[in-house]
Design a protein around this nucleic acid. Structure first.
Lengths: 210, 210
DNA sequence: GAAAAAACCATGGTAAACCATTAGAAATAA
DNA sequence: TTATTTCTAATGGTTTACCATGGTTTTTTC
């Protein structure tokens, strides 16, 4: 049934409908062995233990961000091709994803042919970008400014801030000194050029960093 | 090939992936003749000229809102069952859709069985609601609580706070004393049972008060 | 294994937010 | 026209956030 030179393709998406759609779409191409997951962590488990050629990765997952999973996958298995699949048309997120090692990005409104062609592109060593993604990337958007890169800790602190925790609470939660938390706060404000925490959270949420 | 008692089912969704997914899902049920559209207007055209039993209608469409299309479909063909399909988990949108004559609402994270069962329900004269939709409608979600009524001034202050203004800035903007602004802040915190401004803004945005 | 980045902690200070209570004037509803 | 709510403002105090700077240790990266 399966040929030896079949490619192992993993799909990760927590929308069963999309999962089903991609599956039926790609089954028509007869060169893929397809494995589907609804959780990023499960897929990661699989990829760690089984040779995986291609991953189609939803950016918004119930158990974490596709951005992180992309990075993790690339760490575990650098040769695996990772293509982002998302509704998120945010310029910044596309760039962040590619920065994290992604081999391409496809919007969910792409049609069948486009998807197939993108994947073929990626297989041949190219970059897989759906038409609309290309437009977004080229669009010299003045509205979105260069988003700062956050460290793990900063991300954690930011998330705590966003749910309304005070420095004391965050310190307790992360087992660090209040002073350290305040340092992170200051760095976050500077990185985002925000004048207070509310502005910070606003910018972060607008850019889907939380 | 097609039996006479097959049901004509129209899918409208501008995401080819979802379209494909629903198609392959419903093809397994052998009682449907399936017609797929990516534009609401095209589907409406079809429905006007061809007997249609069921419509699965995406709420977010490129050429208009599913809410409107639902209403139009029901005008042209009142007996057609219209089921909303969306990522939008907003309580208000679900209710508005049903108000517009919709026979059900399914979130895109529903799984295959759930979708099939919902549609069966609708065919048998029932209402088609996926599990999560039911929860949202019942308000079992602890996140939505009795919202406080805000005065005009409080609303203005809240909006200013949400964009990151300080009390001094708000005072200047509204031509009132800083002290007054701080009073409003305190009242807002109490009304929302929030412990700081970030929590306040979070609750307010979650409940679409801003 | 050296260089760089990230995480940690500190001092000392200013500004802003948060808390409790009171209270008069103006708008609104009964 | 009362009664109620809203808007306004105040005193006086506590807590938290924000600012500038500098230093140590751990982790990552080359």
């Amino acid at each position: 049934m399966y040929k030896n030179d079949d490619l192992n393709l993993v799909i990760v998406d927590d929308h069963p409908m999309v999962l089903e759609g991609l599956k039926s779409l790609l089954h028509q191409e007869e060169k893929f062995r397809i494995f589907a997951f609804t959780k990023g962590s499960s897929a990661l488990d699989f990829i760690q233990e089984n040779k995986t050629d291609i991953v189609l990765l939803d950016i918004v997952l119930s158990d974490g961000s596709g951005l992180n999973f992309c990075q993790l996958i690339k760490q575990k298995s650098p040769k695996t091709i990772v293509i982002g699949i998302s509704n998120q048309a945010e310029r910044s997120i596309i760039f962040r994803f590619l920065e994290n090692g992604g081999n391409g990005y496809i919007l969910k409104n792409a049609d069948a042919d486009e998807i197939i062609q993108c994947i073929d592109n990626a297989i041949n060593g190219g970059i897989a970008l759906s038409k609309e993604v290309q437009e977004i990337m080229l669009c010299t958007a003045s509205n979105s400014f260069e988003l700062p890169r956050l460290t793990k800790r900063e991300q954690q602190v930011l998330e705590s801030i966003a749910i309304g925790n005070t420095s004391a609470e965050i310190a307790e939660k992360l087992f660090i000194s209040i002073i350290t938390v305040e340092t992170h706060r200051r760095n976050l404000l500077q990185k985002f050029k925000a004048k207070n925490m509310i502005e910070l959270v606003k910018i972060a949420t607008e850019n889907k960093l939380i």
